[in-house]
Nucleic acid binder design. Structure first.
Length: 280
DNA sequence: TCCTTATGTACAA
DNA sequence: TGTACCTAAGGAC
């Protein structure tokens, strides 16, 4: 389940295994990508790229596979030959195959499941995707001033603006909640009231946090002085792994001030914040 | 075994 | 603002 760090890591993982000049076997066991898979089958993958939560697999003149994981999408990699369909069927329950995109070489394979987008697109269509995305803290070409101009022109809350991929690309619900906590910013602050210094701090923190996310393959936002070891509290027992300040900690005490962490439905997502540490 | 939930987005009204 | 879509894990029974 992905925020931008996941997608950048996937771009790197696909590249490591498949941009080797070796022809790649491309199939769609689940069927929804079958026609395009047939077109790409046995061609080499030449380059991969990520912008925000969008992933692009380049097949040279044949175009790009545009992937968006949505809320549930996942990719699994194996550094081993793929089992044959017959072998796989013998080993698994007679449940429908959910693999939308299967890439395979003699030494590795990758299975994509549950994406909201997996389509073959042209260079022009890819450009259009980039054009509607804001700066990505994980890309070297990102211009944070572009984001600030949109933020300062908006009455929408900074919480909602951070999730708007036209404003900033790659930030999701966890980084949004955590970066606002780390800078003591009330999530309901209107964009136009955010100071340049606040945005500067948010942006540079996102760059650092998200690079760390790519490296660890995990969202970890707690400063060294606030870790469970440093503060003598039990580590987080949770499926997401990383240590966080507020994300999914509703009703639990704030690590810094002890106040109950609050949650609210905000623009169709769950927002989490500390009412004491994040004052207007 | 069923139900809920989820790190997301697009589209309709 | 509500709804549709895609999958799998975890918890309640």
């Amino acid at each position: 389940m992905p925020e931008g760090h996941t997608i950048h890591r996937l771009a790197h993982e696909y590249a490591t295994r498949f941009t080797t000049g070796t022809p790649v076997q491309v199939t769609s066991p689940q069927g929804k990508f079958a026609d395009s898979a047939a077109l790409l089958d046995t061609h080499p993958l030449t380059v991969t790229e990520a912008h925000g939560k969008h992933l692009f697999l380049g097949f040279g003149p044949l175009g790009w596979v545009h992937i968006h994981l949505g809320l549930f999408g996942k990719v699994s990699f194996e550094n081993a030959p793929a089992r044959t369909a017959a072998g796989a069927a013998a080993r698994t329950a007679p449940k429908a195959d959910t693999v939308r995109l299967h890439l395979a070489t003699p030494t590795a394979y990758a299975d994509l499941r549950g994406p909201t987008t997996c389509t073959l697109i042209t260079d022009a269509e890819k450009r259009a995707v980039h054009d509607r995305l804001g700066p990505d803290p994980l890309r070297a070409d990102a211009d944070p001033d572009r984001a600030l101009r949109r933020i300062r022109a908006s009455r929408t809350t900074i919480a909602a603006l951070l999730m708007d991929q036209k404003v900033v690309a790659g930030v999701g619900n966890v980084y949004r909640a955590e970066v606002l906590f780390r800078h003591g910013i009330d999530p309901y602050t209107p964009g136009r009231d955010l100071t340049g210094a606040q945005w500067d701090a948010i942006w540079h923190d996102l760059v650092a946090l998200m690079h760390e996310g790519v490296r660890l393959n995990r969202i970890d936002t707690v400063r060294p002085e606030h870790t469970p070891e440093a503060m003598g509290r039990p580590p987080r027992k949770d499926d997401h792994g990383g240590e966080v300040y507020v994300y999914r900690r509703a009703t639990m005490p704030c690590h810094l001030c002890g106040s109950e962490i609050r949650t609210a439905d905000h623009a169709a997502r769950n927002l989490f914040w500390c009412p004491t540490c994040q004052k207007p």
